[in-house]
Design a protein around this nucleic acid. Structure first.
Length: 155
DNA sequence: GCCAACGTTGGC
DNA sequence: GCCAACGTTGGC
């Protein structure tokens, strides 16, 4: 079992959207490192921290809940759709560039763990998301960090 | 809205 | 392969 963190702009697709949908394809990732994690390393059943970026003072950037990897990697269909924001004209049907997995809702926390909380907590030293300028939208999380954060998230 | 940090592209 | 220019991400 491996653990992950995925980022989403809260305004764009939030943990509430995932709760409503129960399951969704995690499309639109257009970064090779993030794609490789999904395509090569994610396994069904892996648990995932759901991070909202571009926070506000009312809804700060941070972790709002937990999801679960619900499929193996498959082609991200949005790369072929000219009307889609994430359309990639370089991609071809017989040679897709971008892949994704499906994510299932697990739970939403009553109180988020904000980026400030994460940076302040010495138990969480070394987390990718703490690094200044970290832009990786799919990233591995150690078991120790995952456990610590889920304890902070409560039930 | 600002701007620092980052990833990608393309000229050479 | 180098690196400047560019577009994007994301905290504040």
């Amino acid at each position: 079992m491996q653990y992950w963190l995925i980022k989403s702009e809260g305004e764009c697709y939030s943990i509430d959207d995932l709760k409503r949908d129960k399951r969704t394809s995690w499309t639109g990732i257009r970064n090779y490192q993030a794609r490789n994690f999904m395509r090569d390393d994610m396994r069904i059943g892996d648990l995932v921290l759901f991070y909202h970026s571009l926070g506000t003072s009312e809804n700060p950037s941070g972790i709002y809940g937990v999801a679960r990897v619900a499929s193996s990697a498959h082609s991200d269909e949005t790369q072929f759709d000219p009307k889609d924001m994430h359309y990639d004209p370089k991609s071809r049907d017989d040679a897709p560039i971008w892949a994704c997995v499906d994510m299932a809702f697990v739970r939403k926390s009553k109180i988020p763990v904000s980026l400030g909380d994460i940076k302040r907590d010495c138990e969480l030293e070394g987390m990718e998301v703490r690094k200044t300028g970290s832009r990786l939208s799919v990233q591995p999380v150690s078991g120790k960090h995952f456990k610590h954060i889920t304890e902070m998230l409560g039930k």
